[in-house]
Amino acid sequence: MNRNVYIFLLIGLFLASCSQKVRIVLLPDTQTYAEKYPEIMDTQLNWIAHNAKHINFVLQQGDLTQNNNDKEWQTVKNAFSKIDNKVPYILAVGNHDMGSGPGKFADVRNSSIFNHYFPFNEFAKQSHFGGTFEPEKLDNSYYLLNTGKVKWIIITLEFGPRNEVLAWANEILAKYPDRLAIVNTHAYMYSDNTRIGEGDSWRPQAYGVGKDVGEKAVNDGEQIWEKLIRKHANVRFVFSGHILNSGVGTLVSTNDAGLPTYQMLANYQEGVKGSIKGGNGFLRILDLNFKKKTLSIKTFSPYINEFKLEKEQNFDFENVNFGLTKQE
């Protein structure tokens, strides 16, 4: 192992073992691995399993599969089974994970295959499971996790969440104002460090589900911000994937309570500029230090055992307000 990589991982293990420090791993858009390179996804999940005692939870940002077929879903299921009962993980449904059939990307809002391979009953029996928007469907669900003294609520939202879903999410977040919140969804940030909005490529409104109206109408990133995120003082992070181009974007916005919301896009799939083998196994490691009020983001591949060192892939925030009020 590269000496610098080894030292970083040792430091990370120490940090994550302290009660005032939290480690989150992000696994964006695994679709190319599911389709072409299952061994890369296996390497990612094996690495997480090996380091499970030092990782608080794992968040996946959707597009688990490329073609929404049984072969790819079985590949994904086999990979994630490596961390079952070892570290909590939460999945998102992307546009490639729903549709009227294999290869039909979000032409209709049908996620039956996803819910077959990741059934409600398996997640509902976990102690940190909160609930779902629709009975026995994980597309929109929330989880109540504790890391030391920090209480979390994590909401995962479908691709282009419907108006009725955002209304539900507002109710859930309002019910747990004492918990630090993360919103995990597939399509939110764009590659120009803004939220997805009018004129952007791959906007949810451009897909078949985008034709729905009323309570079923979809929402892009800017609409999710206006209708949900900005209203809640406790939402400190929003994570998403989906967008190609550079595949990265970062934005810090001030919500209605005057508190910061850290919003990040990370995507390494086939089609992203410079992508090799659908991302070469890169994932994101977030280290939160509540005592020092810092947030460190590293992009690491267990597959090739390398870090991305570009500033948009390797960066830190200082003076992070992890509290629920401006005074904390």
Score class of each variant (00 low, 15 high):
A206N: 09
K231W: 06
E310N: 12
Q20G: 10
F290W: 11
I155F: 08
A92I: 06
E318Y: 13
E198W: 05
R284S: 12
S111R: 11
T43R: 15
L166R: 05
P135H: 13
V150D: 12
L288D: 04
N110I: 10
N4P: 01
P102Q: 07
F105T: 07
W73K: 06
Q60G: 09
F123T: 07
K151I: 00
W168Q: 05
S19K: 13
N67Q: 07
M98P: 04
F315E: 03
A52I: 04
W73E: 01
L157W: 06
I155D: 01
W225I: 07
P302G: 09
L145G: 00
N110G: 04
V272S: 08
A52F: 02
G197Y: 05
D256H: 07
I229G: 02
E134I: 08
T185D: 02
K71H: 09
S111A: 14
L309I: 09
E306S: 11
S81E: 13
K125P: 00
L295T: 01
S246Y: 05
D256S: 09
T65I: 06
G281E: 06
L13H: 06
E122K: 15
N193G: 07
N46H: 11
T299E: 09
N78H: 14
V209D: 06
N184D: 14
T32F: 09
K53H: 11
E171R: 14
N78A: 14
K291W: 02
F80E: 04
G221K: 05
D212S: 00
R23A: 11
D84L: 12
Y6M: 13
Q31G: 00
K292A: 15
G258F: 13
L138R: 03
D200F: 08
S301I: 10
N314S: 12
K273H: 03
L45V: 03
F80T: 01
Q263E: 14
